[in-house]
């Protein structure tokens, strides 16, 4: 009797501990996550480029890896993570062309992806202050970006937004007139010293959360128990056949 009670208490205790432990683990990792963006051409801007960005969130730290190709070669490509609580949390569409000039500039994309929260510079500051630090962004040799930067610190809100799949990666720089460089009469709405080609969004992708957990990819038809059942059922029917067979044979024998 006493043993039973002791055992019960012990079980209850460990169950409590387990629950507590699970709760704590969850609290510590609530903002952690793996996210990925498929970078695709921004509507209207006609850039035949693509890529992938992967952002790993660990507490207030993010690690970023990004590959892209098809961009204007050997020219700086500002790249950022955008997020806005008021934004649509997506990449802009043709309907975002508010001035109706047939292309999308960075500001026109704002309602879709929100303001800049991280500048994906190669060195130094990564805050929104470095949004146009064109000397510190990847210059896409051969049109390709191979970008890796770890341990970027972000606010808890930004970390949570990225983990929740609400942020977007945007790579800027569009050679609208296909002459191999950033130029043109139209100046950037962000910095009048730059042509709009240097800052217009080229490729964009929402950083989506990775699937959670595993996949239900089995019907169980070939698992052990089914095979055993088949053997038993088949064998049983054969045994029954032996019985009725014997009966039929006896009848036939009787007649003769």
């Amino acid at each position: 009797m006493r043993t039973t009670i002791k055992l019960g208490t012990a079980t209850l205790g460990s169950a409590l501990l387990l629950t507590l432990g699970a709760g704590m683990a969850q609290a510590a990792t609530s903002a952690d996550g793996n996210t990925m963006a498929k970078l695709r051409p921004v509507a209207l801007n006609g850039v035949d480029a693509s890529g992938t960005a992967m952002v790993t969130v660990t507490g207030n730290r993010i690690d970023v890896t990004m590959a892209a190709s098809g961009l204007l070669a050997d020219s700086p490509h500002a790249a950022h993570i955008h997020f806005g609580a008021e934004a649509r949390n997506e990449c802009p569409t043709a309907s975002d062309d508010k001035d109706g000039n047939g292309t999308l500039n960075t500001t026109e994309g704002g309602p879709a992806y929100g303001p800049i929260v991280v500048s994906l510079t190669k060195s130094g500051d990564t805050s929104p202050k470095s949004a146009l630090a064109i000397d510190r962004f990847d210059t896409a040799p051969g049109g390709k970006i191979s970008y890796e930067r770890g341990s970027i610190n972000v606010s808890s809100d930004v970390a949570a937004a990225i983990s929740a799949g609400k942020s977007a990666v945007v790579v800027h720089g569009v050679d609208h007139n296909d002459n191999g460089k950033y130029d043109g009469e139209t100046k950037s709405e962000l910095d009048p010293k730059l042509p709009t080609e240097a800052t217009d969004p080229a490729i964009c992708g929402v950083l989506a959360s990775a699937p959670s957990g595993g996949v239900q990819t089995g019907g169980g038809g070939t698992a052990d128990n089914n095979q055993a059942l088949g053997l038993a059922l088949g064998g049983g029917l054969l045994l029954a056949a032996m019985g009725t067979g014997a009966f039929a044979t006896r009848k036939v024998t009787n007649r003769i």
């Binding site: 059942l229 059922l233 088949g234 064998g235 049983g236 029917l237 054969l238 029954a240």
Partner: peptide, 12 residues
């Protein structure tokens, strides 16, 4: 029974 049983058994 033979056919049925044999069939199931063979499949299993």
């Amino acid at each position: 029974l033979l056919v049925l049983g044999g069939g199931i058994l063979a499949r299993a």
